[in-house]
Every structure is written in structure tokens, then in C-alpha cells.
Design a protein around this nucleic acid. Structure first.
Length: 460
RNA sequence: UCCCCAGUAGCUCAGUUGGCAGAGCAGAUGGCUGUUAACCAUCGGGUCCGCGGUUCGAGUCCGUGCUGGGGAGCCA
């Protein structure tokens, strides 16, 4: 007999004569002559209540079933005699697959996120984390669907890269050298002996490679892990995280902003519709204002202001900032928070930043002072998208590389794309975990990724 | 890396001015009951984060280290 998932039982519209359910026991309560067993199989938030009568041949064993134990239940799906649930299973057989000892760390009552992080291998068995990771899966699907509907192609860009510096942050080294006996040449590690014959790192972005495919397939995107070896200790940063990076040929900065806004709104709409009961859990127990926040984002036009206008708003705000607002320096977190949470109270796209504070690949504007960069800021998360129109003019790109001290030889292939049929193109990076935080109201990135990697933390 | 806060039972926490280590939940045992964070009774459970210091006496005060959290920087 094939097992049926609890998801399909809870929305059943008629009783069933014979069902087989397998899952983990959340709690068990005794009554006179029978026992209530709450079983969850991870297919949905809901448990199914099982009635195990004392006439069952192994009732003595059934009475030893503890929280966390795995069971297989055969019986009838019948209308529940008690309140609180529509259906329950009148068990005809309860097989104990394995008993969890009393040391099982998950209890019926609420645990703190900090404690659950120390048992990341068990936390998906809780209501909250089960819901979060079901949503994570649905959100991934929604991303692929969004791009496919619009004719984008999915590109697998490399995880290991030979580019010494991709412009963002410190990188993790990839090597097969024996770290206890590193071969030396001229007083330095000799990478000629290494696997690739030169230094290799984990990627910090698939952008440069994705650009090559945008200039061939038109509209493309990547969706995969990226790595930053920054010693960041905040609730919004992880050393390993997932990023969505669309890249579009024949697209300027306006088109880029349009896509970013549309993407965020569409993903929120999708999740509110397709993950309704899981989202409701977060709206009830994690952030009471969650639904209002999500609806507000879906309904509002994102504010779009140039960097100079943002600086003006901040200067005229009469708000005491720890760091002074000044043209030419990057916006501090407190400035971004002010714009998106206080001044506008909705998502804000800041664009056209001074070129001195942005990387070499961003397109220089006609004023020769700013570049076509854009950051999407949302309340409670901060920067969720960072992107730009790319510099497609060979000479200017080459000049910017010289200015920022990048070795031209390393990027010969990137420059060549500007030599052969170069076209205006744009793209951005969306932080997938930050999107998860936005959607669920969970305020720590370590709680929206299955096994988080942060400085000094690589357990599991 | 810098600034701030915290660390007490398996979990969540209380612990007054420096004076015998506590509660709820969880666990075990018994009872009651179509229960649903079940209920009632009994019992077991501690390196008060580590190290050093002050003191007649430290969970409490001081120094230091570790771990966790929040903020900043870096960014998605």
C-alpha cells in the first residue's frame, strides 16, 4: 500500500476507508481506553491526529511512543469527534519504525532561535523551520518560473574561479596543496604546483560569466551559491549564500530597475498565494505585521531617486545621524534605513552613484561623475538588490580597470566581449536569503538557510 | 575587526544589599480524562560558561578568556 501525505488528508473532502501514513510523532496524549497520537510528515504544517485504541495488539508498545519517534499508521480517515480538526485517523495498525529516547531535544513548547541553531540538524522538524524551508523551496521554483515566463535562460556559472578579484569582498581559496608543506618559489607559495596551475578561489558572483551569455542568448540568469570570506558578524550576512543574478542584453538601467521591481513583487505574490498556511504561521508568531508589509510592497510603486536626491533628502531631514551625510561617500546603513523605513516607508531604488565608490564594470554616465548603479532597499532588510548597467564601451572599460588597478591580462576575455559586437546590457544580484527574510519576517539570515556558514561556524 | 548586552537544571527563565540554588516546561512513577501547549499528585535532576582575583563568605563584585545575541564596517 502506498503512503499518503498528510497534506492530502487535511484537505480531503470525504472519509477514506484505508490510508497509510508515515511520519514523526509530535506529541501523544492518553485517554481512557485509547491514545491520541499527533503525527507530522513534513508535507505541510498540519499534524494528523491518530486514535490508537487499546484493542490494538501492540497497545503496550504504543503507550511508550515518545515525541520524535517515527511511526507508520494504517487506518480509516474519519470525521473527528473532537473539536480542533476536521479529520482524524482511526488506527487499525500502528507500527513503530523507531523510538526517540527521552533525550530528544525538541519539546512541544517554544524554543529560542539561538538554541535551535545549535541543533540545526533537527530544527526542520519544528513547525517554524519546516514552514520556512517549504517556503524556501517554493520561492526557488517561483524564481525559475518568473524567468522562464519571460524567456530568460538559466546559466550555470562556475563556482571555482581563477579571476583574482571579481570586485566584491575577500575570497575563499581553493587548493590541493599540502598546507603543512606548501611548495615555495621565490619565497612565496608556488601555485604552479597547485591543481589549476594558478591561484583559484570560490566565486563571489557569477556576473562576469553571465554577461558573456547575455551577449549570446539575450536574457539569462544564474541562481546558485556564492561565497564571501568577509569577517561579517551581522544578522544579514553569511559566508555562503544564494544569489539570483539576471543579465539582459539591450537593456538600460531603467529596464533593469523595472525587472527588479517586478521580480520582487511577483515572488511575494506567488508565496502569499501558494504558501498561504506556512506564511500565516509567520504572520501569527514571528511578525504580526507581516501580511501588511508584504501587501504594501506588492501594491506600491518603488520610489526611484538618484543618489544626489537621496543625499539631499538626508541632509534636509533634520535627523541626527551618527555619520554625516556627504556627497561622494557611500550611504551608511542608517541612511538607507531612514529612506526606506521612515521617509518613504516602502521600497526605494537609489541609482546613479558617484563612480569613485562603485566597481569598474558599471557604466559611466554622460556627466562622467556617476555610474549607472542601482540599489533596491526594502524596510527591515535593507539592501536586497544591487545592480547596474554594465560598461559596454571598450576604451572606457579599459580606462576604469586601469583606474581601479585591475590587471588587464586577467580579464582579457571580459574585455574581448566589448570588442566583438558589444551592446548595452544590464543586470543585478538579488540576495535570496534576504528575500527569504523579507517573506517570512525571520530577522536572522542564519535561520533561513539550512546549515548556515558564518565566521567561526561550520558545524553540520 | 570595533562598540554594547548576555551566559544559572535537558529547555525557558527568576535569584533582592555579597550570606543554605529556585520556578514553569520536559523526564520518570501513579491517577483522571474525546484529548489537542491536556490536567492532578509524587520523584529525580546543577562544573551558576572557563581561569584568576577581592572577601570570613562570590551565582552576585573586579580582571581575563570563550560562546551567543544586537549594532557598525564589508555587501546580497
Amino acid at each position: 500500500m502506498k503512503r499518503i501525505k498528510i497534506l492530502h488528508l487535511s484537505d480531503a473532502d470525504a472519509p477514506m476507508d484505508k490510508v497509510l501514513v508515515k511520519g514523526w510523532v509530535r506529541t501523544r496524549r492518553d485517554s481512557k481506553g485509547f491514545s491520541f497520537i499527533e503525527v507530522n510528515d513534513g508535507s505541510c504544517l498540519k499534524n494528523i491526529q491518530v486514535i490508537a485504541d487499546e484493542n490494538l495488539s501492540n497497545y503496550e508498545e504504543i503507550n511508550k511512543i515518545s515525541t520524535g519517534s517515527a511511526v507508520s499508521i494504517e487506518g480509516k480517515l474519519v470525521a473527528s469527534k473532537g473539536g480542533g480538526q476536521k479529520w482524524e485517523i482511526q488506527a487499525e495498525g500502528v507500527d513503530i519504525i523507531s523510538l526517540a529516547p527521552e533525550s530528544y531535544p525538541l519539546q512541544k513548547k517554544r524554543h529560542t532561535d539561538e538554541f535551535l541553531r545549535t541543533i540545526a540538524h533537527l530544527r526542520p522538524r519544528t513547525n517554524k523551520y519546516g514552514a520556512a524551508f517549504r517556503i524556501r523551496s517554493e520561492l526557488s521554483y517561483a524564481i525559475h518560473r518568473f524567468f522562464r515566463d519571460r524567456g530568460f535562460r538559466y546559466i550555470h556559472t562556475p563556482i571555482i574561479t581563477g579571476s583574482d578579484c571579481e570586485g566584491a569582498g575577500d575570497m575563499f581559496r581553493v587548493t590541493t596543496l599540502n598546507m603543512d608543506h606548501v611548495p615555495v618559489a621565490d619565497g612565496k607559495a608556488d601555485y604552479a604546483e597547485d591543481f589549476f596551475g594558478k591561484e583559484a578561489k570560490l566565486t563571489v558572483s557569477g556576473q562576469l560569466e553571465a554577461e558573456m551569455f547575455a551577449l549570446a542568448l539575450g536574457d539569462v540568469y544564474t541562481f546558485g551559491p556564492t561565497f564571501r570570506a568577509e569577517n561579517s558578524n551581522t544578522r544579514r550576512h553569511a559566508a555562503e549564500f544564494w544569489m539570483v543574478e539576471p543579465e539582459m542584453a539591450f537593456c538600460d538601467l531603467d529596464g533593469n530597475m523595472d525587472l527588479g521591481e517586478e521580480l520582487i513583487k511577483e515572488l511575494l505574490r506567488f508565496v502569499m498565494k501558494e504558501c498561504k498556511s506556512d506564511i500565516e504561521l509567520f504572520a501569527r508568531f514571528v511578525d504580526k505585521q507581516l501580511l501588511g508589509i508584504l501587501e504594501n510592497i506588492v501594491a506600491s510603486d518603488f520610489v526611484r531617486i538618484p543618489y544626489t536626491a537621496a543625499v539631499e533628502i538626508l541632509s534636509e531631514s533634520n535627523k541626527k545621524f551618527e555619520f554625516p551625510v556627504k556627497y561622494g561617500s557611500d550611504l551608511q546603513s542608517e541612511h538607507e534605513w531612514y529612506l526606506t523605513e521612515e521617509h518613504f516607508n516602502r521600497p526605494v531604488i537609489v541609482y546613479n552613484y558617484p563612480k569613485e565608490i562603485k566597481p569598474f564594470y558599471m557604466r559611466v554616465n554622460d556627466d562622467d561623475a556617476t555610474v549607472g548603479a542601482m540599489d533596491v532597499l526594502v524596510p527591515s532588510i535593507g539592501e536586497i538588490i544591487g545592480g547596474s548597467q554594465r560598461e559596454e564601451r571598450y576604451d572606457i572599460l579599459e580606462g576604469r580597470m586601469k583606474e581601479t588597478g585591475l590587471p588587464k591580462e586577467e580579464y582579457w576575455w571580459y574585455l574581448e566581449s566589448r570588442e566583438f559586437g558589444s551592446v548595452p546590457h544590464s543586470g543585478f544580484g538579488l540576495g535570496f536569503e534576504r528575500l527569504m527574510m523579507l517573506v517570512t519576517g525571520i530577522n536572522n539570515i542564519r535561520d533561513v538557510i539550512p546549515f548556515p556558514r558564518t565566521p567561526k561556524n561550520i558545524e553540520f
